[in-house]
């Protein structure tokens, strides 16, 4: 394990930038290409790279299995919850225009929350998928 020094240092250097890029893809998805799905996959890729280089235990210290497995339903709940919120405020399911006073801002907020839900579910699913396979191989 001592011989892959370049791999380890390289991974350490690149990890924060992968996460930063994921956040960029997530929050810049309104203006450029990207969105919750892509950002979620990139976030999961960061954890997977960490697991491949430093072992799965190091990855599970940063993204514990109980957390990632709970993220899977939480994201869907945030998404559906945003939809139900529109229903409760007197419009259709998934109509975000009632979330704020200004309908345009409401829809912007709705898109933001929905994308956050997608990010949480996708990153949780992809990471726990990898954990499931990796733990099986022990």
């Amino acid at each position: 394990m001592k011989l892959d020094l370049i791999l380890r240092i390289g991974t350490k250097l690149i990890l924060p930038f992968i996460l930063l890029f994921a956040l960029y893809v997530q929050f810049h998805g309104d203006f450029g290409p990207g969105g919750g799905f892509q950002a979620g996959v990139i976030t999961a890729a960061m954890v997977i790279l960490l697991a491949i280089t430093f072992g799965i235990d190091a990855a599970q210290r940063i993204a514990p299995p109980w957390l990632v497995s709970r993220m899977v339903p939480v994201g869907v709940l945030i998404y559906a919850g945003t939809g139900v919120l529109g229903l409760l405020l007197g419009k259709n399911f998934l109509d975000y225009s009632v979330l704020l006073h200004d309908p345009v801002h409401g829809r912007e907020l709705g898109i933001f929350m929905v994308e956050a839900g997608v990010l949480i579910t996708v990153s949780g699913t992809m990471t726990s998928l990898f954990y499931a396979f990796a733990e099986r191989g022990r």
Partner: peptide, 16 residues
Amino acid sequence: TGVPNIVTSVLADYRG
């Protein structure tokens, strides 16, 4: 929707 990226607005709003 106030979102310039049409893909995002279609995915998350019009076709939510």
